[in-house]
Write a protein that binds this DNA or RNA. Structure first.
Lengths: 178, 178
DNA sequence: CAAAGATAGTTGCGGGCGCAACCTTCCGCG
DNA sequence: CGCGGAAGGTTGCGCCCGCAACTATCTTTG
């Protein structure tokens, strides 16, 4: 149900093309690839986030943090580690965790080994929520994105984007500090 | 110069993988493709936006609007058309145009044919700025993104994303103005 | 051991963004 | 002609986000 308001036929336009002026030698494929990436991300992200918010009251970022906690060693991580893994700023992580704590989805307790640090730990309710939320989320991503792609295309995307995002690529784990 | 703070070695983990629970059958390639898309977009977008803001005082969205105006028929468009073309909400477009107007980069004047409507028209200063801004912007996208890709990969991306973003796809050309 | 510097988190602030409410102007139909 | 609904824009509001400033706690080193 990601309806799309403001959709117009549209003419040809070209916004992104300085062209012959002497500097960018972008082919149409370049423009399609780059602008398409931007557009696609915008569309999918909006729809997914809206769905997630409506059904589970979680933003995409909150789900990511919850998911990382769920996958972590003792279901807990330091905020800095979460920030590093997710690519969010520490301040954002701090606030999201604060919000999740208020909702009784995670607990925050001092790290015994370092008084400055905090362990954010997902609890039972959080774990339950993350599971159902991810279920619908995955299904949506599948339907909205992967179902429109061929197997080889997925391979190429994985290869390309894996090159840029060593961070999450794998995912995880956490061998990390703890 | 897109330095990357908070970069950790990171191990294998999986945050995004419910796995065998019975619903998502995502392969690792799926995860790499999707999460990589998210990550890549986040990184590139942040770096590009920061650069654009620092050098020209324009956000990515503002540049897009300016570019679309520059490429439009009389260097002018209705706000609704701009919103539809860019995928931004009308309210955002209204405010961005307002900001650009204050900076004397565009003019806003009533549409003779429809008293409700407004024509946002880019002026000389705006045109000059958009050119230089796009020059550096294109160069950065080239360096940060395309230079890391092979020709066939670009083709695949163009093909894939063109499927999702009929909107901007076209682009351009440039027979542009002037 | 004490001071300088690094690190973990928190919070004030401002920017970007969309939704919904609102006004004005058009349009279509009785 | 007049009225109700649609469309173009604007603005109030609240969410998400990062930066910078600040506190508290290590860590390093003379």
């Amino acid at each position: 149900m990601p309806e799309d308001p403001t959709r117009k036929p549209q003419a040809r336009s070209c916004s992104y093309e300085t062209d012959e002026d002497g500097l960018a030698h972008w082919t149409e494929a370049h423009a399609d690839a780059w602008i398409g990436l931007l557009e696609t991300h915008k569309q999918l992200t909006r729809a997914l986030d809206a769905e997630l918010t409506a059904k589970h009251g979680l933003s995409l970022s909150a789900l990511e943090l919850l998911a990382r906690l769920a996958a972590a060693d003792d279901r807990q991580m330091h905020l800095t580690a979460l920030a590093g893994a997710s690519g969010l700023s520490l301040s954002r992580v701090s606030r999201i965790i604060g919000m999740l704590e208020e909702r009784k989805l995670v607990d925050r307790h001092a790290c015994p080994a370092d008084a400055r640090a905090v362990h954010a730990q997902i609890n039972g309710d959080g774990l339950a929520l993350v599971r159902t939320a991810q279920a619908t989320h995955f299904a949506s991503v599948q339907a909205m994105f992967f179902d429109q792609l061929g197997e080889s295309e997925i391979q190429t995307l994985a290869q390309v984007f894996g090159r840029f995002a060593p961070r999450s690529a794998a995912a995880c784990d956490t061998g990390d500090e703890r």
